[in-house]
Design a binder for these strands. Structure first.
Length: 726
DNA sequence: CTACCGGATTTTTTT
DNA sequence: AATCCGGTAG
């Protein structure tokens, strides 16, 4: 390639950058900290810099860029490729980098090559097992607390012994015991939990100088995004990988640190300059994303944080509309307001993918979902985990996991009697006992014709199960989609689902979608093994499933929203106790982190931002009076427009424009006592009583004798003509 | 061994 | 409200 051509392409990487952006991009060797405010073009800088490195001082494969989510990684990879440099660059999340390196160097890490990644559920079940093994009452040692204690310990890079040593009270000492057993169980099953992925790689790099040097040689330039949300293990990895060359580029924003609760250490970014006295520091404070008013509101909010480096974002963007703050009666009214506003925006020409709804907790998605459905507006929820958490999906995955890693007893136990094949608790307990006594895995015991006699009357059933497993085993070398399809049929899962399908064909569809996903994986990675696919699947995050091209409004938690942007944003549930969140009176809240979370949500908005609050909200089944979030009082009045729901809501002002409009308005005349209705779950019923009001409520009694109160505007009730009966 | 019932606990946020 | 667990009955 002629030299001049080369130079032009490098120039084109710089030509449209501002001075600080260019400084960040062209800094090649030595530590670099990019303090990038929200919307300051950080991704642009990272991608340009990666491409610049690959075009000047490094080969693409010597650059590794680490992001927070897979979605961010994919986008970044695409953008770098689009710049014409960087095929072969490593762009991935911390977790997937760790998973891959540990797999590659399993021998040095003292791991089985086919180790499996244990997710939250698996971890829970192992913790429970550990609690039982310690002869503690599972009711007093609720897994939630123990799990987070163990996770915290791992984030601090404390092994069970170190944890026991620093344990103060009796509670911690007991947890140390559980931790130890948990680790043993995990090791027996060749499993690593999410925290282990980081911890084990950090330890490996610490202990194995030769490997560390090899990896340093390979990854000469390390870029880490969202550095404010790294935990101690990630911090250690970052520094171990850059020990000789110090080519560590960290980008982030202390004001967007929102993962303290899972061990993220905001100190990592605040200390960067002390860690690296020779570091170049670039500040990006011009915002290209939001209108002036949105930025002013968000900036005022975040300035209320005391523990904070002062920083002022500015923009040359238009002033824009005022930020709307809306008081609503209850969650339904709030959702109705949001849905109506969205309908109007769509009517005005907005695309659905330009609109997002954020909330503090997942439970808040329910009301908006309902309202959007009633309004005929397509939406998607960023909740990838939920899909993989489905029963039928987990069951199928468990079979596949057993193929990949027969030592995985959590999965084996899950499938041993799914579909029901007459191997119950007693039999399983006997088999497990035999396993413990013989120092073998549960799988080995099941497969061993001798030991199987232990099963007594159920021996024949265990026999057949063993044969099934043996016959499935060869599928481990098949392409993932094929393995899944075969397992689905031969395990009897498919028949079982079809059997139950009478009313519900969704589970089968879900499995089909899973297989389709596997197909996609094979296309992208033709050499991809089942093991790799499983790995990728277990490391999928919630945001990773959102699809801009889906033509749908996006709903997600504030945490998931980090790094994204939308022209139109609604943040709902701005109530004291919800945002800022308060679990209960004696669990302290990190108010500053909550405020940063709110800040993150607000700064996702490019043009229109609406914050809503409901005076009454259902919490744990009870309706509670809620006070508006103190954060709302911290906003600058000039930039805010306060609205009462119903005062001048953006309801049908162009009444016929917009999508099929079955919006939350019903004709009360169509409803009277005696009206026949159909409900998905309860079947056919008859309206008994009506309570008209701003929302029409109705008491419905169903054929089965069930009686339910519904809000007609939102309930999934279909009116029936009398002659439709029978 | 399965099926069902009542009580307890849950979710705050996630790779 | 919904799920999950343990216990009991069949």
């Amino acid at each position: 390639m002629p030299r001049s051509h080369h130079d032009t392409s490098v120039d084109s990487l710089l030509v449209d950058l501002t001075e600080p952006q260019r400084a960040a991009v062209t800094h090649t060797d030595g530590p670099l900290l990019v303090l990038a405010g929200a919307g300051s073009g950080k991704t642009r800088v990272i991608t340009r810099r990666a491409a610049y490195l690959a075009a000047t001082v490094a080969r693409p494969h010597q650059v590794v860029a680490i992001t927070f989510t897979n979605k961010a990684a994919n986008e970044m990879r695409d953008r770098i490729l689009a710049l014409g440099a960087g095929a072969g660059m490593t762009v991935c999340t911390f977790h997937s980098l760790c998973a891959r390196l540990l797999r590659m160097h399993h021998d040095r890490a003292d791991l089985a090559p086919n180790y499996t990644i244990f997710d939250q559920d698996d971890r829970r079940s192992l913790v429970k097992q550990a609690v039982r093994a310690c002869e503690l009452d599972p009711r007093n040692w609720r897994s939630g607390h123990v799990e987070s204690a163990i996770s915290a310990a791992k984030n601090e890079m404390l092994d069970p012994r170190a944890f026991a040593e620093q344990a103060r009270g009796w509670v911690d000492k007991t947890i140390a015991g559980i931790y130890e057993v948990y680790e043993r169980l995990l090791a027996e099953q060749q499993g690593l939990d999410f925290d282990d992925l980081l911890l084990r790689l950090a330890r490996l790099l610490q202990d194995d100088d030769e490997l560390r040097e090899r990896l340093e040689e390979r990854f000469r330039y390390v870029l880490i995004d969202e550095y404010q949300d790294t935990n101690n293990a990630q911090y250690a990895i970052a520094h171990l990988l850059t020990r000789e060359r110090k080519n560590l580029c960290a980008t982030g924003d202390p004001d967007q640190s929102i993962y303290g609760w899972r061990g993220a250490n905001i100190g990592n970014i605040l200390r960067f300059e002390q860690d690296h006295p020779d570091a170049e520091v670039v500040r990006l404070e011009q915002n290209y994303r939001s209108t002036r008013r949105i930025l002013a509101a968000a900036g005022r909010l975040i300035s209320a944080n005391v523990n904070r480096k002062d920083k002022e974002l500015w923009t040359e963007n238009a002033e824009g509309a005022q930020v709307r703050v809306v008081d609503c009666d209850d969650a339904a009214a709030e959702a109705g307001y949001v849905a109506a506003g969205i309908a109007e925006a769509l009517a005005a020409g907005r695309q659905p993918c330009e609109i997002a709804i954020f909330y503090r907790i997942n439970a808040l998605s329910l009301a908006p979902e309902l309202a959007l459905r009633r309004a005929g507006i397509a939406y998607q929820i960023a909740r990838g985990q939920a899909f993989y958490g489905r029963k039928e999906i987990k069951d199928l995955l468990a079979y596949v996991r057993v193929l990949v890693n027969p030592a995985d007893a959590v999965s084996l136990r899950r499938v041993v009697n799914v579909p029901a094949r007459g191997i119950g608790k007693t039999t399983l307990a006997r088999l497990e006992q035999a396993a413990v006594e013989g120092g073998r895995t549960l799988y080995e015991v099941i497969m061993d014709p001798e030991a199987r006699r232990i099963a007594g009357r159920s021996a024949e059933k265990v026999n057949r199960f063993a044969e099934l497993l043996a016959s499935l085993q060869p599928l481990v070398d098949s392409p993932p989609s094929e393995a899944l399809t075969e397992v689905f049929t031969r395990s009897g899962l498919r028949a079982c689902l079809l059997d139950e399908e009478k009313a519900d064909e969704v589970p089968t569809e879900n499995v089909e979608n899973l297989i389709a996903e596997a197909h996609k994986f094979e296309t992208a990675e033709p050499e991809g093994t089942l093991t790799r696919w499983l790995e990728e699947t277990s490391l999928l995050g919630d945001v990773d499933t959102v699809d801009e091209s889906a033509g749908a409004v996006t709903l997600m938690t504030l945490h998931a929203a980090k790094g994204l942007e939308f022209p139109v944003v609604y943040v709902i549930g701005l109530e004291d106790g919800l945002l800022p969140f308060r679990r209960d009176e004696d669990t302290p809240t990190d108010l500053e982190e909550e405020r940063r979370l709110c800040f993150v949500g607000m700064t996702r908005a490019m043009e229109e931002l609406t914050l809503t609050h409901a005076r009454y909200r259902l919490r744990r089944g009870q309706e509670l009076r809620n006070v508006a979030s103190p954060f709302l009082d911290e906003l600058p009045e000039d930039e805010i427009e306060w609205l009462e729901e119903g005062e001048d809501p953006p309801t049908r002002r162009g009444s016929r424009a917009g999508p099929p409009d079955e919006a939350p308005s019903i004709n009360p005349a169509q409803w009277r006592p005696g009206t026949l209705v159909y409900h998905q779950e309860h079947g056919v019923g008859r309206v008994q009583l009506l309570h008209p009001g701003s929302l029409n409520r109705a008491l419905v009694v169903f054929e089965g004798g069930d009686a339910e109160n519904f809000i007609l505007e939102y309930a999934d009730l279909t009116r029936m003509d009398p002659d439709e009966l029978d």
